[in-house]
Simulated scan of single mutants.
Amino acid sequence: MQRPDLIITPKIILPRLVVRERIPPPAKVGMTLEPQTMHWQIIGPDGRVVREADQACHNLVLDNAKELVATLGLFEQSEWAVIGTGSTAPNPSQTGLVNERARTNQTGGPTDSTTEVSTGVWEITRYRQFTAAQVGGQNLTEWGFSGSGTAGNNLMSRELFRDGSNNPVTLTLDSDQQLRLIYKVRVTVGPTTPQTASMNITGIGNRTGQFVLQQRIITGAHGYNANPVQGLSSFARAANPPKWIYGFQRRTLGYGDAFWDINNMVDFAGAYEAYTANSQNRKMSPAVRSVTEVNGTIVGIGMNENHAITGPYPRMYFQFDVGQEITKDNLHELTIAGFEISWT
């Protein structure tokens, strides 16, 4: 029985409330590599097509290809056509043909083409032709594409030859016949419209702004890398020292902007961080500017894929929100986290 003078007060535990500032994700470019279709043709000694079929690519990209982006790039991985005599069904874990017989980067006459089929979606068509010396008298069952001319486990894609109904078939070639493969592969890049993002600045923290990919760097007589996939491939495989670009004047951001005002930008050579295996992500090293460099109010940060190019023309650009700009003086260094590129 409870004593009348004893009052028991239950202990109430309140939930812990943690308040964190919502910060947009870091500025990052994304890329997706995707084979589309392959059309094969058996060509007679007179140059006429004697047998052919369209086939869809059953598996998208081999897992192997996603790692090879860091060394071979994107479109570059379809430079070489590869054929063989294996019959194992394709799966993404494969890295090469079961029984490779030949590979070629010769077109046989037609010219490869690159087209932007929709905003940010770039398609390349490869024409690769094997000579009668390579394939004549063969019974071919498998094919693939690679960024290397060396036989081995370096394929982007692997498939079996199929008929128009996508049933596996064996291509039996006469001794004087040739084989042509017509292959389409796409790369989707973005963001092609300005996206809310953030950039980390040492000693200051994260600043917010808008980030966008640029379609072109230079137009007119220069025409440098009007196809952004070329530039992003260079970033991904660390082919050239990237160029940091500092903007001092606000601009209207857009994917299709042709060029930038050289009088309101300053540029510097940068570097890349080492690729981390299986990350499918390449980071640029932080940019460090001394007390004598880029002094003034910086409203935007950009980068392109080659420091050798004349003029500050960004491939990607981050523009700070109003009120988030950086004002740098000659008493402080400036260290900014590098951009990132990821792919699938």
Rank of each mutant, 00 (worst) to 15 (best):
D5A: 06
D5I: 10
L6R: 07
L6G: 10
L6P: 05
T9F: 14
K11I: 15
I13H: 12
V19W: 03
R20K: 10
L33F: 15
E34P: 08
P35G: 11
T37L: 05
H39C: 10
I42R: 15
I43D: 14
E52V: 14
E52M: 12
D54E: 06
D54P: 08
L62I: 12
D63N: 10
L68G: 15
A70C: 14
F75N: 07
E76A: 07
S78M: 11
S93A: 14
L97A: 13
N99P: 08
E100M: 09
A102Y: 02
R103I: 00
R103F: 02
N105E: 03
T107D: 06
G108H: 08
G109T: 06
G109N: 11
G109H: 06
P110V: 14
T111Q: 05
D112L: 04
S113N: 03
V117T: 14
S118Q: 15
T131M: 04
A132Y: 02
A133V: 06
G136Q: 04
G136F: 04
N139D: 02
G144Q: 00
S148T: 05
G152W: 00
N154I: 00
F161N: 02
R162C: 06
D163S: 04
D163N: 02
T170D: 03
D174L: 02
D176N: 08
R180T: 11
A197K: 07
N200Q: 01
G203W: 11
Q210M: 15
Q214Y: 08
Q214C: 11
Q214S: 08
I217G: 03
I218E: 05
A221W: 12
H222R: 15
Y224S: 06
A226I: 04
P228R: 04
S233W: 02
R237S: 01
P242I: 00
Y246P: 11
Y246H: 09
G247K: 04
F248Q: 05
F248W: 05
R250G: 03
T252P: 10
G254A: 07
W260S: 08
W260G: 10
D267S: 12
Y272A: 02
E273V: 03
R282T: 13
K283W: 04
P286M: 03
R289V: 10
V299E: 12
V299R: 12
P314Q: 09
R315P: 07
M316V: 01
F320T: 05
G323S: 01
E325R: 06
T327M: 03
H332D: 11
H332G: 15
E333M: 02
S342L: 08
